[in-house]
Design a protein around this nucleic acid. Structure first.
Length: 581
DNA sequence: CTAGGGTTAG
């Protein structure tokens, strides 16, 4: 089996192509071909071949390989086809391997599929390298299921660790982390040798599915096998622990690392952001700057998201300025996060300014801006923007976009429009409404005090209502003074989450409105008996650019009550339900 | 031939 290393070992006499001469083969191989104009190389070589020059096979192979890795992988394919048709080369396992890795980088699977049938015809599917390239080609072209079919129907003994690793990576890329985890299990069951790439992929799968057990197992395997915690491994571990809600474990991995690159730092910062520890996220960003590690766009995007969720406008502005100084923030993800930050912090003008300045807009840009208008009470503008999005038609709305649209209708009291968009969501865009969308609709009807309609809507839902849906209905009951029905609804919430604090409180509030103090007491006593402790309501406030975090009922904060009153005035969103007790 | 972090959410 030919490999690249064999090629670079090969040395030969000087030879020439056209009028350019090279001292030896090795020199050609070390030419950074992507730096030359890639288009000229096949042209140059084609001319040489047509004029009857014989080129050594290793050179041809190396050029094919470079082209397949270059910016225009299809050049590799056209050159290969020329070589074949001029009788220069017959397709063997090596050239087929190169061709397949070129097609893996094409947007369409069609050429790759043609090569697949060629592979079968030539009887090369039992070659492990060719097989793996084939699997990789289907995985990269977003056909992970077909890739799996290739693996499952491969001849006995042809598959190896890389084949399985490629399958797992393909599932992850295709947004199928459960399948990835399953494949990892099968791999272990069939006693395929696991390596560090396997564990790395399995860690990603564990994180995305929230399967701590498997994540821990992988971590244990890493330690037991003495696998070095590289930046790759470390960032995967950190991200896995963070996604499973174990911030401390993530931090332990982070602190214990011998060397960390920007990805490790970003993994930890984004872990904090995802877990709602915004202050820690920002602090770690500071530590990162102190340590001299340069942030990149991924870091900025997650830090800005933390600022947005804290409502820290000054801090957000600082990070924005940091971007300009360090030449960062050119990527859309950062601009989108800035739009979100400015609109969540109330500077909707600045948010819209950034949005308007975008030369390219993805679904995040539109959705963030729509949601930004909605939460700032500019429901009309939110809906106008959605109309503009549909009119331009370059970006398809997704489920979250419709959450923004429905929220706008709900906040604006636009019932007919709400129904209209709710229907269009599935009819026009083939998006199945999720429980969140049903929640929006109940909220829409409840806010308009259309209690009977809201109730009917819940009854006709194809999914079981969750706590949020019931809570929306409960608020509607309260607004309509329907105490009896409110009791029923509060009981449903309690039923869904008997161990949680909230349901008990809601029910006891309902009792309190009808002065049923005996029932209130009974409920409170049972709560104490169950040692039910509430999650403290937590808020942030920025004073002179400094972010203070405080908890409801936090005695250490002397000004808690005062700040709470300020918050009530600033942003109704910050008022956690448990603060009201 | 395979590998890590990032933006929207009732």
């Amino acid at each position: 089996m030919s490999t690249t290393s064999q090629i670079s070992v090969e040395k030969s006499k000087p030879f020439s192509i056209a009028k350019r001469s090279f001292p030896e083969n090795k020199c050609i191989l070390s030419i950074p071909i992507p730096r030359l104009s890639q288009c000229h190389i096949p042209l140059l070589l084609s001319r040489a071949i047509v004029s009857g020059l014989f080129l050594k096979l290793p050179l041809v192979h190396s050029v094919l390989r470079s082209l397949s890795l270059g910016p225009v992988p299809s050049l590799s394919l056209s050159f290969l086809s020329l070589l074949r048709h001029s009788g220069y080369l017959t397709l063997d396992n090596y050239s087929l391997n190169i061709a397949l890795s070129a097609t893996a980088r094409l947007p369409s699977v069609s050429v790759g599929a043609q090569l697949h049938s060629l592979t079968v015809k030539l009887g090369l599917v039992s070659d492990t390298f060719v097989l793996n390239s084939l699997i990789n080609m289907y995985s990269s072209c977003s056909y992970p299921t077909t890739a799996r079919l290739v693996l499952d129907s491969a001849p006995q003994g042809a598959c190896d660790t890389v084949s399985w690793n490629t399958i797992i990576a393909g599932y992850l890329r295709g947004g199928m982390p459960n399948k990835a985890l399953q494949a990892f299990g099968q791999m272990a069951k069939e006693q395929v040798r696991l390596d560090d790439v396997t564990l790395l992929n399995a860690l990603v799968a564990s994180g995305r599915t929230g399967t701590v057990m498997v994540g821990r197992l992988c971590h244990a395997l890493v330690i037991l096998n003495g696998i070095q915690i590289s930046s790759y491994m470390g960032s995967s571990l950190i991200s896995m622990y963070a996604k499973c809600g174990l911030a401390e474990n993530a931090r332990k991995v982070f602190d214990g690392m011998y060397e960390r690159n920007v990805v490790c730092w970003t993994s930890m910062i984004s872990g904090y952001t995802q877990l709602g520890s915004f202050k820690e996220a920002v602090e770690l960003f500071r530590d990162m700057q102190i340590s001299g590690m340069k942030a990149d766009d991924a870091t900025i995007a997650t830090v800005v998201s933390s600022c947005a969720q804290m409502g820290a406008l000054d801090l957000g502005r600082y990070v924005h300025a940091y971007c300009d100084v360090h030449g960062l923030g050119k990527e859309l993800a950062v601009k989108n996060s800035l739009i979100d930050m400015y609109s969540k912090c109330g500077d909707i003008k600045k948010a819209y300014e950034i949005f308007c300045g975008l030369t390219k807009r993805d679904v995040f840009s539109w959705t963030t801006m729509i949601m930004g208008f909605a939460v700032n009470g500019l429901c009309g503008q939110a809906l106008d923007l959605f109309a503009q999005m549909e009119e331009e038609g370059e970006v398809m709305p997704n489920e979250v976009t419709f959450l923004g649209v429905l929220t706008s209708c709900s906040h604006g009291g636009l019932i007919e429009q709400g129904y209209h968009h709710f229907q269009r969501m599935s009819m026009v865009y083939n998006l199945a409404p999720r429980i969140e969308h049903y929640g929006c609709m109940v909220d829409l009807l409840g806010r308009a005090k259309l209690l009977a309609l809201a109730e009917q809507f819940i009854k006709e839902m194809p999914i079981a209502p969750d706590v949020v849906v019931w809570r929306s209905l409960l608020f509607a009951c309260r607004a309509c003074g329907e105490v009896g029905y409110a009791e029923y609804v509060a009981e449903r919430i309690l039923e869904l989450e008997p161990k949680k604090f909230e349901g008990h409180v809601l029910l006891s509030n309902v009792y309190a409105t009808t002065s049923r103090w005996v029932d209130v007491n009974k409920l409170r006593t049972s709560m104490d008996g169950n040692r039910m402790s509430k999650q403290p309501g937590c808020s942030f406030i920025e004073v002179d650019g400094c972010v203070h975090e405080f908890f409801a009922g936090d005695e250490s904060h002397v000004e808690t009550e005062a700040i709470y009153n300020i918050l009530l005035g600033i942003n109704e969103l910050l008022v956690a339900e448990s603060l009201l007790i």
